[in-house]
Write a protein that binds this DNA or RNA. Structure first.
Lengths: 204, 204
DNA sequence: CCCAAAAGTCTACACTCCGTCGATTTTTCT
DNA sequence: AGAAAAATCGACGGAGTGTAGACTTTTGGG
């Protein structure tokens, strides 16, 4: 979605515009934390990045496009992190590791992740990005469930369908918890882990 | 939140304004289905209700207030329905009944419920309304879990905390499923029921 | 039935934000 | 150095918001 402004793929020195673009995204993230999506105006972002509205429109076509680019940048991190995670084969260990990783991701990128979830409905590109991310998580959960002995398949009581609901449970629980204290956050994570274990048939 | 326009509490005949107010809310609900929250303008609502923008501001102070009133009206139904539901004492039966009821609620009021969830972050009053609703559901789930033998308490592996996460799971799963086919909706419900049973220690 | 007060409605205005355009300046590359 | 490409600016027209003041309809007591 950042395909409308000039390509600059293979190039040693960085164009001035690259710096500006990053500044815009950084400012956007900061404003998101300060005033939230609705209150944040295109003028605000431009000002924060040290340019005028007119100039900002050289980089992005709208506030939505700016935020979409920001989400894309963040989600990229999530994907890298997912890929980098080694597959543990012992289910209990795998579940603990996955929850630990999720906590870290929400700690680092909670703000943008929350924003992505909120905009999923109204901004199709963001919806796309986030649903792809959710698919990655669902796939990972499915694998763990199957290894723990849950029957593979898409019927309501089989691994795939259960993984999807567990994914939504984790998303929503963290979404809310990450707006509260660190303490609640930690506890919420433990609760999700516990339910995941039970769902995998691994009674304590 | 509808406290700014004249009180008309105890009165036999209905004021003209009462009819208009209902017309506004109905129009708002219809437009929400047609074009969604963002695209819907105050002018649209007024026109649909047969008055001008100026007149609409006599009833509500903003688009947000209109939607908040609509959410309040809908949520009222949910509360009534919850109160009316008899407490079944056999956990398996209680869980099945609760999921059945939830399916019906989402079928009838899915649109407004989705809207309420979306606006929870940005419109404090809606957030209030919805979090109260979630509390009711969480309390009900907690009761069932405890009756099924899950230890009472707020620690991560005890009834109260688990109920909260299960509530979010159900909310999110239905939120997504209700935008797709009836078939997926039915299956998603079965999956939630299954996970709830496992969480309650009621293995199939 | 009358008529004043209350309730409801309208048009017009001032404001904010948005997205676009053409002109202009700065950067980049050779 | 100097032309092409990249970046920036200010100004405009449009859409939506919320408010103000005048006007009309409805209501209810005498």
């Amino acid at each position: 979605m950042s395909g409308h402004h000039p390509a600059r793929s293979r190039r040693g020195t960085e164009r001035k515009g690259d710096v500006r673009e990053r500044a815009i995204l950084d400012t956007c993230e900061a404003l998101l934390a300060q005033k939230g999506y609705d209150a944040m105006t295109v003028g605000d972002i431009a000002q924060g990045a040290g340019i005028t509205r007119g100039a900002l429109y050289f980089y992005f076509g709208s506030k939505q496009e700016v935020v979409t680019a920001l989400v894309a940048r963040t989600v990229e991190h999530l994907w890298e992190r997912s890929r980098a995670t080694a597959q543990t084969d012992e289910p209990r260990r795998a579940i603990a590791a996955a929850m630990q990783r999720t906590v870290e991701l929400w700690n680092e990128h909670g703000l943008v992740m929350r924003t992505a979830i909120d905009l999923s409905l109204t901004v199709p590109e963001v919806g796309e990005l986030w649903s792809h991310t959710a698919d990655l998580f669902t796939t990972a959960i499915t694998a763990v469930l199957e290894r723990a002995g849950v029957q593979a398949g898409t019927e309501p009581d089989q691994a795939s369908a259960m993984a999807r609901s567990l994914c939504w449970m984790i998303e929503r629980t963290f979404y809310h918890a990450s707006q509260e204290s660190r303490e609640k956050f930690r506890k919420a994570s433990a609760t999700c882990e516990h339910i995941w274990l039970l769902s995998a048939g691994l009674n304590t």
